[in-house]
Design a protein around this nucleic acid. Sequence first.
DNA 1: CCCAGAGACCGCCAAC
DNA 2: CAGTTGGCGGTCTCTG
Length: 363
Amino acid sequence: VTATGCSRSAEGPTASRPEFRGRTTGGHRVAVVAADTVVSFELGAVVHVLQSAALLPDGPRYDVGVVGPPHPVATSTMQPDGGRGFAVVPDRPLEWAATADTVIIPGHTSFLAEVPPEVAVLIKETQERGARLVAFGLGTFALAAAGVLEGRSATTHWRWSAELAARHPSLVVLGDTLFVDDGSVHTAAGAAAALDLILHLVEKDRGAVVAASIANQVVAPPRRSGREAQHLQHEVPPDDHDGLRNAMLWAEEHLAQNLQVADLAAQAHMSTRNFSRRFRRRFGATPIEWLLQVRIRHARRLLETTTWTIERVADRSGFRTPGVFRHHFVRIVDTTPGHYRREHRAKGRASSGIRTRGDSGPA
DNA sequence: CCCAGAGACCGCCAAC
DNA sequence: CAGTTGGCGGTCTCTG
């Protein structure tokens, strides 16, 4: 067991930092709950983003505390037997959350089985005193279990949305959205969508300009709205009761062909217009955007696992010329096909960090 | 990197 | 009446 404590700056008189002139009104208090099995990515992302805000000139001051027991708690990176991964040490007691302006419940893998009673109590009390409640991924299960989502809309990771809806029939589960802002209760799909929700909350607090600056500060992608679908997580939706799934499966089997949107629409027994519209509404992407992603993913596999020429990989992935292939590959993967292949080959060899520029076509 | 033609996208609107 | 569908056409994006 390697329990690496995440120490942090003492919380005492931190107010006297002359570099940034935050507003003199007391910082907005944010309590982030960390118990055993906390999803480290979500915990780290929210703390990092909110603390980054203070680095901006006139950036909002968030007083962020990780609340929990005074000893290391296992993160989701650790195996049940404690073999690998790392732990974190909460820096404030759970009671500190009782006075926080915002209480955040990151996902905990154990929440599927049970929610610790003290966490459920905290959630309930937070709602009763009117403070802001936020949950990521499996954290939504804790909110639901605490009974604060009755009749509300919420989201969770797509893998668990059906389970959530089954357990809580009165809850409107928006399974395909990145995050949901339902007044004082906010839920996100988890993982990267947690970042989107945090930026959304900062935008509500301090405006779009500040939120954009923070996104820039943490090198986050351009902001996504909550309505955007989680689609890129999975290539084809598990089930959808309409023709979209059939069309997508069909397209994946015929990637090498010259597919047009009208062909996909025909597979779905819809007009092109309606297919595009439904596709966009459900997945937040256009059919061609999705198809390009699938084609590039396929091409990457071929580059990794075959010695085919670039031209052949392009052809088998549905790109009619190597030039078009290269264009989209660079746009999406941010490197050239040839370079990508060499990087991948270089794995395990000594030449790790050296990059050569200026490759082209079939080597 | 540029260009022109083809194809895709999407707001609009009438029909259901 | 509210929601869905599909054609039209202006504009954007992709292709070669």
